[in-house]
Each structure stands twice: as C-alpha cells, then as structure tokens.
Design a protein around this nucleic acid. Structure first.
Lengths: 234, 234
DNA sequence: GCAAAAGTGTTATTATTACACCCATGC
DNA sequence: GCATGGGTGTAATAATAACACTTTTGC
C-alpha cells in the first residue's frame, strides 16, 4: 500500500522474448541451439547482454509486443511463439519491472540474415554474462523447450520447409543433449502423422535421404483453450 | 506509441487466482471440483462473478500477491500454487489491465470454513456469468489441471493428510471426468513412490480401506528451474 | 447369506529400446 | 571395393488396459 515513487514510474511492464534458432557448423558438424542477445547500452547492467525486449505499449497486446521484439532483432516471423512466464520479483531490477517473457522458434534457413548493431547470436551452452535475471529466464526457457520436445512436434519449427529425417533427429539431439537411435526415431515420427514424404532426395553425402515436409494440419503443440494466433508458414 | 491517458492510469497490473478445491456430497456422492468466486460490487461488470484478485502492490512479489488474494477469500494456505498465465489483451477490460493469473489447490477438509460476504463456491461444471475474460481463464486453468494430473502427483493437493486409495481415485475421476479402473489405479500409485501406507483404516461402509499419507519428500509437480516456494504442509 | 467395496492375479495389447542387418551412394 | 549414412527387421522389455477373481466388512 506504500506509494513512494511517482505513479508513472511505480510499476512498469516489459515484454521480452527468448528466441531459439539453429546454427549448423560449416561441414558435417552437428547443429546447435542458439539465441540472439542484445548488448545493453544504458544504465542498469550497461555492457552486459540481455534478452531482446521492450516496454509494453499501451495499445498493444502482449503477443504483439513479443512479435515486435522478435522482428526488431531477427527481422523474422517466428514459426512458433508461446508465453513462457511472468517474472515480477521486487528485487529483480533496480526499479520495479514485471516482465512478461515469451519464447519463440525461428527456422534455421533464414535466421542468420540479420546482423544488427549490438545484437549477436550465442550458443545456449556457452552464454555470456547476462543482465537482470535473464540467465535464470533462459534456463527456464531451455527447460520448457526440452520438455516440450518430448510430447509435441515443436522441433519441426526450427527446420526449413523440407528436411531429412536425419536433420530432424539432429534437432532433437541438439535440444535433448543426447543421441537418439536413428531406426527408432524414424519409426516414431513416421507413425506420428506429422510428416509428409516428398519425391525429392538430399544428395551429396552417401545414400540420398528422402526429404519430408511438415504436415501443417497438425499443430506444433497443443496449447489448450488459449487462442492460437497465426505464425509464419502455418 | 500513443499516450492518451495519464501515466498512472495507463497500464495497471492485477493478480488473480483460480483456486480449486473439492466438495463432497452428503452421503456417498462423488466429489466435485469447485472454486470460489467474488461478486463484483463496482463499475465494470458490477453484479457478475469474478476471480478473487487485486492490484499488484509495489513492494510485493507476484506469488505473494496471489497468496494474499487466496488468504483473503479462503483464509487458507494453499497446498499448491503455480502461475497460470499472463492475460493482457488490449480489449479484455475497459481500461488497460494486465492480469497475472495463478492457480492453486486447497485441501478439501478445511475449504468450507470461510463463508465471507460476496464470496461463494461454485461447481466448475456449472459456473455463473463471469466478468471480463474470466470464463476463458477458468477454462484454461481447468485444462492445465487436467493435463497436470496426468503426469504429476498434483491430485494429492486436494486431499487431507490421510486418505484412502478410493478417495484419491475419485479426485482423479472428478478432474478427468471419467472413471478409472480401481485395480490398475491402485498399482499405478503404489508403484509411484508417492504414498506412505499407515496402519489405520477407514471404516463405516463395507470392507475397511487402508489410509495413506502423502510422501512429502516427493514434489507434487516438477517446475523445472523455477524457484520452489513453501506451501502448506509440504 | 448377500451386496459392495477392498484388494490380488492374469493376460492381451501397445510403446519403448537395443541392436543386427541390408541398401545405395560417393569416392 | 569400401566406408558411411539411409533404411528395414526383430526380439526383449516395460507400460497400459481389460477383466476375472478373492477378501472383508455392514446389513
């Protein structure tokens, strides 16, 4: 009930987004989960890295604010966007800030097109020093991602339109941090009704691998009664 | 970017809580999932029922605000409390309000002690007309509850300290809305390491049923890297 | 004894896992 | 040919589900 600051500064609402994408090494290297961070140029935690985000606009929905954030840092539309959590501890920032955090997936094929000022992509297993409680937030987002990959088709959201089963498996392996049996993996996804085989093959290495499309009639994840908004290519 | 209202009124943060409990009929009736609602006595939606809640205090964490809300309506400490979602659509209220919504479980044995003014308990399958988007919020909370009951021991949070396997099964049945095989249910929970058998029996009807305690060393639900705060009897 | 819930046993079905093996290509 | 990843087959194991059956009480 104590009001010591001026009303306008008392409590502010920010929206941030943990944006996951994939970075493949040059040759046959395994893909890695990466995310973009923004270097802070202002007072609290200046110089440290932080999640992309901004203040919530008065005439803007939460998800719109997250999309805006995402477009400003990656110039992309996400293949998946979901609210992660609202962080609002009194001591998480010098001033009182409630942060509504979203997490998103963007497909790997185009994710490297945006190299803006003070924005860089980091391997999730090798993050720099982070501002505020953002290290904790990213931990939680990674936990959600790993969890969700086990019971939904979320991993498809990181791949381009056409992909091989090995590429899809490598996404699962990068997220889960362990190797999966190729034979069993194949059968699981083939029986899951989420893949549409094409007549094309990825050639170049050894035996050509069949390319698949994602079945867009199946949602990437069940969100229950929450409204499902449009995302890219879905 | 338009700022048409005064700063203090531009955007407010509220915290509401969907509080689930159990109500048993007089005789052998099956238990039902119930929740408390508050009748609105002020301008928007006056007279309609709404979720218990209030404005977020400047020096109060989100979860503390939810606990306060909960204590004010039920005079109880919850056995489980988790953030549900942040609702913040521009048009969800006449003025711009971002609501951080929690959901909670309170044990059935004591939940009916509080009959305050303008507060009443409703069967989740027979709700009255609700203010704002609260009907939608309750839908989502019920979906979460049903979901979580499938992969965690959350249902124990609705029962008193000692209970029979049939009582626990009835909780699952009330939440899931379908009957479960008593034999298979018994084996599942017995193998889950969450129950401690006692030497007491519930007598009165037919063959006496053994009473069990919840094993407090096992968390009701895995919340990942989110900080676990203390709840009642846990 | 009889009804009804407590509690045990058995079997069929399905999903998961491990791993042997064949296939098709680049070199 | 041969190395390598693509792709198929198979068997052991574990989880789920359906249901018959025995036990113990109140009446």
């Amino acid at each position: 009930m104590t009001r010591t600051r001026t009303p306008g500064d008392a409590l502010r609402v920010a929206v941030s987004t943990v944006i996951f994408s994939l970075r493949r090494g040059v040759d046959g290297e395994r893909p890695r989960v990466v995310l973009p961070l923004v270097r802070r140029t202002r007072d609290p935690y200046e110089g440290l890295w932080a999640l992309p985000g901004g203040w919530l606009d008065e005439d803007e929905n939460l998800e719109e604010a997250a999309s805006r954030t995402l477009a400003e840092t990656t110039t992309l539309a996400p293949s998946y966007l979901e609210q992660l959590y609202a962080f609002g501890d009194v001591d998480r920032s010098p001033s009182r800030v409630v942060s509504i955090v979203y997490w998103a997936l963007v497909r790997e094929d185009v994710s490297l097109g945006s190299e803006q000022h003070n924005v860089a992509w980091f391997d999730t297993e090798n993050l720099p020093a982070l501002a505020f409680d953002h290290a904790h937030i990213i931990d939680y987002a990674l936990w959600r991602l790993r969890n969700k990959v086990g019971y939904s088709r979320i991993a498809h959201g990181l791949l381009p339109e056409a992909f091989t089963l090995a590429e899809l498996r490598e996404v699962y392996e990068a997220i889960l941090g362990r190797r999966l049996d190729p034979a069993n993996f194949r059968r699981q996804v083939e029986n899951s009704d989420t893949l549409i085989p094409t007549d094309e093959f990825r050639t170049g290495s050894h035996r050509p691998a069949r390319l698949y499309h994602y079945n867009h009639e199946v949602e990437l994840a069940d969100r229950g009664p929450l409204p499902q908004r449009r995302t890219a290519k879905d």
